[in-house]
Design a protein around this nucleic acid. Structure first.
Lengths: 134, 134
DNA sequence: ACTAAAACCGACAATATTAGTCGGTTTTTA
DNA sequence: TAAAAACCGACTAATATTGTCGGTTTTAGT
């Protein structure tokens, strides 16, 4: 079944939360409570988002996280790709190493999957965090 | 990682195979060999396609499978949805039973996922089997 | 009528991925 | 100096995917 992982769903909700309170620093505890996301899991998700510079952190008491840039500069696609890893519908989409497309029919379908992949990515990139919060 | 299951990839390739040889009946063994798909697994995939009337079968010696309708009448989306089950990016997309959207922010993101889901489905429906084989 | 080739079927097993947990260490503010 | 928070890596549990197996039924050809 094709679906978006809870990781991405949680991640997007966390980002939307941060976007809604741009002036303040929010702790994992706070986000976790208001968005009803398991604390320890959210920690891992947030950590990924921080490592790819979508958000920044402040350690210690009163610490927490905040967006690294303006919500209008953050496309949803960026968030999803950080969390899901790259969106690759089928392996070996265009002649990478280890990719032996000997069968012509196989490659017929591959170029189709590639189209779908592109269309998915551009759909994800068509909106920014700012678009979501209003 | 967002990806298309091998089930759908195999299924699409099998359908493309059948579309390429419209006049003849192809056995699982034949398709399995020419497309390099595990026989037993392909059997299960084919069985699903048959139950949803995308293909038809003939039992016994010289039996096999063939498309139930013209390739131009079969959208790739139909094939994928049969094999993947419905494409539901997130549970509870719009007020189904058991869906308690108490949080406004949560639903903000849900309507976004709904958009992505729709766009994915229409991308899958934009091409037919016939489009693929030429 | 018999045999072999095929569809048809349901249960099982192996593997991979996702989702979540846990026990710590480090940093910083009050 | 104590508490709150980020930060980190290893682990476990649950679920989904991928594939296997052992059969039964149907049918064409001999």
């Amino acid at each position: 079944m094709i679906k978006i992982s809870t990781k991405s769903q949680y991640g997007l909700r966390a980002m939307v939360y941060l976007a809604k309170f741009p002036k303040q620093i929010s702790s994992i505890k706070t986000i976790s409570k208001s968005e009803d996301i398991p604390f320890d899991y959210l920690e891992k998700i947030i950590s990924k988002l921080e490592k790819s510079s979508l958000i920044k952190s402040k350690k210690g008491v009163q610490g927490g996280y905040f967006l690294a840039k303006n919500p209008s500069k953050i496309r949803i696609g960026e968030i999803v790709r950080v969390l899901e890893g790259d969106i690759v519908l089928v392996k070996c989409i265009s002649g990478q190493k280890g990719c032996k497309c000997t069968r012509e029919r196989e490659c017929l379908t591959k170029s189709f999957w590639k189209k779908i992949q592109d269309s998915l990515n551009s759909a994800l990139d068509s909106l920014t965090l700012e678009d979501l919060i209003k």
